[in-house]
Design a protein around this nucleic acid. Structure first.
Lengths: 225, 225
DNA sequence: GACATGTACATTGTATACAGTATGGTGTCG
DNA sequence: CGACACCATACTGTATACAATGTACATGTC
């Protein structure tokens, strides 16, 4: 699916477990509020409970599951309130990333970003949704690299997974936002390549804010609040 | 010992361990880049490695330690770059918290906030540094509660500990910022109590930005970059 | 019939044993 | 003398056994 399976050999068992579980939660094979018992997961993946526990801690860190001491772990529920929380936090952080990326002078990375930009245009003219999506994801990763801010990256990563759950839901509901995205994404990339921090930041914040509002009604309809 | 205490206050062993280790790292009894082996920690606190591993995961989540797979765990180094990262991220997030707190209509909590405000003034006139500090901390917690945003809270918490390391260092170096703080803090609280989100946000961002700049030189002098 | 109490079971939390891996030193060979 | 391989050691990673705790159900009492 749209989650690229990066099954590197350097991934530890807890990390691979976490990845698998994340994907299952994101695409809904493991449903909201479903309980996850350590033994079940362990048996299913053919490992002991030790790495499972670590994997579940990772999921907890990313907000995908809720843990209550001595009671167990449940998949975090989806709601419009949670959705709003994720996007209110994400907006300024993504804006910051774009700004710091723009202020970077790493010409090698910036050339790569331009290449991604061209890929996006191409995917758009060809109507290739999948290519557009993967190029978009790579563009984000490039921006994070350019921003060169491990702390910011850590924070954004801990929002990413929960956000993907809503994004997948929107995808299923055919809430199309690609046309909206290309034009604005292009402008953001231009600003970054032009080393215009202010523009990159505000354009990014506006884009995410628009995506947020686009998805918001559907999320509210589906998950209440 | 603390085992009984944990039961009484219902803190799990990993959490108490993490708290102890956090404090030791923050005040420098465990130094930057010092290695933490699971066995050492386990022996020291009279527990097995299992809860220690969980505690160390918690520290990793909060950015206090760096973990390299199969190699071990080291206390995260301090540097001006890291300091800048933490504060660039913190600034908009604290601003957001203040804004959302201002937009809250929880009158009970707002009354408590006003009480904290008065405590701050009192501590200021008495020159009671310690009281001022604890009241300030409680004020922050109240703002987070008012903001009623678990995601935002989670992100801020994962920045808090690393920030405290720098803050403690500043405290040791007698970088005084209390006079700076009271006036501005009061204005922030006023804005929140007046339900003025824009003001609360920008005042908060400005205050944190000032604190950042105040500490920055000292941090650079001490930790390089 | 409603509620409290006790008990069995399921599940998490902790300890410990064992396996796998990185590191540093020593020896041997070029 | 230097480089490489090998081995000892220390530590992390994983499995498993055991303890503690929470939950559900049954039994008993009012």
């Amino acid at each position: 699916m749209f989650l690229q399976r990066t099954q590197k050999f350097s991934l530890s068992i807890p990390e691979s477990l976490a990845e698998s579980l994340e994907e299952e939660i994101i695409v809904g094979r493991i449903k909201s509020e479903e309980r996850l018992t350590e033994e079940m997961v362990a048996e299913r993946y053919g490992v002991s409970r030790s790495p499972v526990r670590e994997a579940l801690r990772l999921l907890e860190r990313d907000g995908l599951v809720i843990r209550e001491a001595r009671r167990g772990i449940w998949v975090a529920p989806l709601s419009q309130k949670d959705f709003d929380e994720v996007y209110t936090c994400r907006t300024p952080l993504e804006g910051l990333a774009a700004r710091q990326a723009a202020l970077s002078r790493d010409d090698v990375l910036k050339k790569e970003l331009r290449a991604v930009q061209r890929e996006l245009e191409e995917a758009q003219t060809n109507g290739d949704v999948r290519s557009f999506f993967t190029a978009d994801v790579r563009g984000s990763l490039m921006i994070y690299k350019l921003a060169d801010n491990r702390t910011l990256r850590r924070l954004l990563q801990s929002l990413e997974k929960q956000m993907l759950r809503y994004r997948f839901h929107a995808y299923e509901q055919n809430v199309d936002m690609i046309k909206l995205s290309l034009e604005d994404t292009t402008r953001i990339f231009d600003a970054i390549l032009a080393c215009n921090g202010d523009a990159a930041q505000s354009l990014t914040e506006n884009l995410i804010h628009q995506i947020w509002q686009n998805m918001r009604d559907e999320v509210g309809r589906s998950f209440g609040n």
